[in-house]
Simulated scan of single mutants.
Amino acid sequence: MPTGTAIRDVREQLFAAAERVLLRDGPSALTSRAVTTEAGCAKGVLHRHFTDFDAFLAELVRDRIGRLDGQAAALHASAGTGTVAGNLTVVLADLFTSVAVAIVGLIIYRDGLRARLREDTPTGVPLLTDATAMIASYLASERDLGRIVPDADTGALAPALVGAGHLLYADRTSAPPEPEAVQKVVATVINPVLQPPAPR
């Protein structure tokens, strides 16, 4: 890797390499040597930018959590449009890409990484906890718009949706679920709290 390369480029190269190893070989294969070999650079490059491997993995997870901001903005903008179930089906499919599912598995697999991330997320599983907050905020907006009943418990609905969604997508060796399967799960959770249509 040429000297003078911007640190952001190095970070992104290493993060992308880590994701490839994680997707291909699983969390047990993710080592600093595997990442630098995949990235095509010397092992010392990683340790020049991160204090240790768990610090690198923590930054990888934080970077991927930061990408939820765009999804959250799009979901918030969808409030009041389309259908609530349709909007949630789309966001769950966007949320549970193969990389996100693999990262959740990595967090669960590595105790040292989980301990680092506790600084940011004291409870729950990072990424899933952030996704739950995003969906709860969206549901609250839909409730304010009158599309969900006023007494709907968004704090209970959001983790039910995220948990069910994660179970649908969790098998990284199989094809992702069909949209109809995701729609069915979303409808099961959401339909009881949807505001009935106004009589004509």
Rank of each mutant, 00 (worst) to 15 (best):
D144P: 06
P199N: 04
S28E: 13
V149S: 06
I135T: 12
A39E: 05
P159T: 09
M134W: 00
D171L: 00
D130T: 08
F50K: 12
T188P: 02
R67P: 04
Q183A: 15
I135D: 09
Y169F: 15
R147W: 07
N191W: 06
D120I: 14
D120E: 12
P176L: 02
C41R: 12
H49G: 04
L30F: 01
P27F: 00
A77E: 14
L128T: 07
D52S: 09
D54V: 08
T173Q: 15
L46V: 04
S32Q: 07
L95P: 01
L75C: 15
G66P: 09
T97C: 02
F50W: 15
L113A: 04
P122L: 02
P192H: 07
P179T: 07
P197Q: 13
S32M: 02
P126Y: 03
F15A: 10
A158S: 13
P176C: 05
L95W: 00
P197A: 14
S28W: 01
V45D: 08
P196I: 10
M134I: 04
A140Y: 10
V21S: 11
L95H: 01
A156W: 05
R147C: 11
R67V: 01
T89L: 06
N191H: 14
P199C: 03
L113F: 02
N87G: 14
L168N: 10
H49L: 04
V186E: 02
A42R: 14
A100P: 03
R62E: 07
H166M: 13
V185F: 01
R118I: 10
V21K: 07
V189P: 03
L68I: 02
S174C: 12
G40Q: 02
R67N: 11
A55G: 12
A158I: 04
L157V: 09
F56Y: 00
R33N: 12
D120R: 15
E180N: 08
F53M: 08
V101A: 00
A55W: 01
A156G: 11
R200P: 11
L168A: 09
C41A: 11
D63A: 07
R33P: 09
T31S: 15
A18P: 03
E59L: 03
